[in-house]
Nucleic acid binder design. Structure first.
Lengths: 199, 199
DNA sequence: AAATAGTTTAACCAAATGGTTAATGCAAAC
DNA sequence: GTTTGCATTAACCATTTGGTTAAACTATTT
């Protein structure tokens, strides 16, 4: 299982950039992590900016979507919503630091969003809109509802250090707390449906 | 209206640190912003770390609380919840970049949370718990509900550049969108109450 | 007015950092 | 086996950056 130098660089850069951010990351640290000479970083990716942008695009692209699959399945509205929530929570549990990294990076340099496809949310909003039209969800603004949904999923991860401290939970307690997150989010969402869809 | 040098430094440091983060901020930029010599920064605050910590503590402390006031007032549960949501949304509208700065800073250095009082959420959770006991709110985990509430308020601000882009809204459209946020959050929260408390 | 003590500045410094370069290694092509 | 061209490295460079220092300024005290 030989790994190409380029791949080693990408792996290392992902780790260091996500951990330290663009300003905090050191090219030497990335080189060390990849176990290569620093000059190689510039050989494969011209500059720190270029390398960062590459990593950011990559991370951003496989972060947002992956829900489309759930939408296409033959399921009730509530099951689809549960699928979306579950999908996000799983991804977040595996990459707890990723969302704050992505969000902060776009704050520091909003221009990078320009290169991102901006239709990703359309399906999601169309699905919500459709559910409302069919009176399966109460009358809400679809975009607003989507942000509420995402906020409930993402916020406990984005605010990890603050939230765990304020809730007076240890690291492991907070992890356990997050495990119960799906059920609690779904309790809220079920209240927004016309029929209670109990299993 | 003479402003002390120390105050000028604090003002400038707040602006630069919130804009650029700890790693991105330059001491020279802060000095320029304060219109003073760079050495003065070290005269008043020993190091960049010290100055940063001072700013961070300050910002953090007047960010989280301010809700206690609402809790003490003689109001219905729903009105209190609306007061909390309204309080946060107002603050966020005036300081849209502050939450991502605070959250990211704690991620980069979780140790800074140790110096924060960690009882702030207690009143909030006690209030929610009480409302549930009195059957005014549906049966939910109070901590989980609090994070959902905060997530709905904070997330659209924390995720500003991503969200506005994904929702295909211009800057001004997104600002307008955020103005409608309170109503939408309250629609969700009202569904979590036993009696509909229409005015 | 001279001494004192706090404040402010210009000039300076050492370390760190992104980036370059010239030489070397190395495998495939000839 | 030697040439060719990419991959890799050690050494180096210019700039930036947080931080220091010694001198100058300012106002109050004596």
């Amino acid at each position: 299982m030989e790994v190409s130098t380029e791949e080693k660089i990408i792996q290392a850069a992902e780790k260091i950039f996500v951990r330290d951010g663009f300003d905090g990351a050191r090219m030497q640290d990335i080189a060390n992590e990849a176990e290569i000479n620093k000059a190689l970083l510039h050989y494969y990716f011209r500059s720190k900016e270029k390398l960062f942008e590459h990593i950011l695009q990559r991370k951003m692209k496989d972060f947002i979507p992956r829900i489309q699959a759930v939408l296409r399945k033959e399921m009730s509205v509530m099951d689809k919503l549960e699928g979306i929530v579950d999908g996000y929570l799983r991804m977040l549990s595996q990459n707890p630091r990723l969302p704050i990294f992505l969000l902060y990076s776009t704050y520091r340099n909003p221009a990078i969003m320009q290169h991102m496809p901006h239709e990703i949310f359309r399906d999601l909003i169309a699905f919500i809109d459709d559910a409302i039209q069919k009176k399966q969800l109460k009358k809400l603004d679809p975009s607003q509802f989507l942000l509420s949904l995402l906020g409930m999923c993402f916020f406990p991860f984005v605010a990890w250090p603050v939230a765990s401290h304020m809730l007076e939970k240890s690291e492991s307690e907070y992890v356990a707390f997050l495990k119960g997150r799906k059920v609690e989010i779904m309790k809220v969402i079920r209240e927004l449906a016309y029929e209670t869809d109990s299993s």
